[in-house]
């Protein structure tokens, strides 16, 4: 039963990594650079929600068995808006000028590292270094047959991740914007030549990715705590491992990759020292790079599912 419990925790952690990785793979696919600030955008999202719930004080009692109140809804929307505004702004003043100049994608990645360092320090300067929580009450787990324990929040995390994955699928495959995004990802000059305003597509990509980024950040804080240094320490490598496992630019692949990373990370503690846990996504990453560098579901053309 222990193993099953670990698998369930792994699915929760994997959902968070997977949702974050979906946002990351979307920008990686459309904008063609590795955004090293992505994990810190999640941090920004979790703290913006904290601002609404705690600093402003919109709590909204309790929703059913969950640890939070109705205030979570405006908080998440605010976090999405904030992260979207931030990324669109950074794109306008940092990434777009570099793109125009046809700077190599590695230098754009370095610029994103600068964004990550500064953003993390700003969050720390505003909200301090101590770990925080949205709510202080004890959050009771539900006990199922065989002594399995799951918290209602965790069920919601898995469910919401799946719902957002379906929504992203519909958006990419059933809307004009989604078609334009896939076209831009495949071949931006060709997309532009066929009348797609690729700059607007890029802005839309930031906004859509921000939804997943912000929600994943809030989920991380619910599952663990709000930590200003979560980005480079805990989140970035697992998310990139998920992105590459799933094939760059492939959102479903990123989700499956996230689940693989999360579950193997938690399961590993059954056999090895917990302190080695951060090494698991790294080993998965190295393994996939040796065996199949284009990812489990990656093909020569991106986005094909």
């Amino acid at each position: 039963m222990d193993i099953l419990q670990l698998v369930i925790v792994g699915m929760v952690v994997g959902s968070i990594i997977g949702l974050g990785a979906m946002g990351l793979t979307l920008t990686f696919g459309v904008l063609k650079f590795a955004n090293f600030a992505h994990a810190d955008l999640m941090t920004l999202g979790m703290y913006l929600a904290f601002f609404v719930i705690v600093d402003v004080g919109i709590v909204g009692g309790h929703v059913g068995p969950f640890s939070f109140g109705w205030g979570m809804i405006p908080a998440v929307l605010f976090a999405w808006g904030g992260v979207a505004a931030f990324t669109v702004g950074v794109d306008r003043f940092v990434f777009r000028p570099l793109r125009r100049r046809e700077t190599d994608f590695l230098s754009i990645g370095i610029a994103s590292l600068g964004v990550a360092i500064a953003l993390q320090a700003v969050v720390q300067a505003i909200w301090g270094s101590a770990p925080l929580r949205y709510h202080s009450e004890i959050h009771r787990a539900l006990t199922f047959a065989g002594g399995l324990k799951i918290k209602p929040d965790q069920i919601l995390i898995i469910g919401l991740t799946l719902a957002m994955a379906v929504a992203l699928y519909l958006l990419l495959h059933r809307t004009r914007l989604g078609t334009a995004m896939r076209a831009t990802s495949d071949n931006a000059p060709l997309a532009e030549a066929s009348g797609i305003d690729t700059e607007r597509v890029r802005i839309a990509t930031w906004v859509i990715a921000s939804a997943m980024t912000a929600v994943a950040g809030v989920m991380f804080a619910l599952q663990s705590q709000l930590r200003f240094d979560a980005g480079f320490e805990f989140l970035l490598l697992p998310m990139f491992a998920a992105v590459i496992l799933g094939g760059i630019g492939n959102p479903w692949g990123a989700l499956v990759g996230g689940l693989i990373v999360g579950i193997s990370q938690e399961l590993s503690t059954e056999w090895i020292n917990t302190g080695f846990k951060p090494g698991v996504p790294f080993l998965l990453l190295i393994l996939i790079l040796i065996v199949r560098p284009r990812g489990l579901f990656g093909s020569e053309t991106q986005w094909s599912t």
Partner: peptide
């Protein structure tokens, strides 16, 4: 960029 990504985690 794969090496860049692989090096993120080594220190941690």
């Amino acid at each position: 960029d794969f090496l860049a990504i692989a090096t993120i985690g080594i220190a941690t």
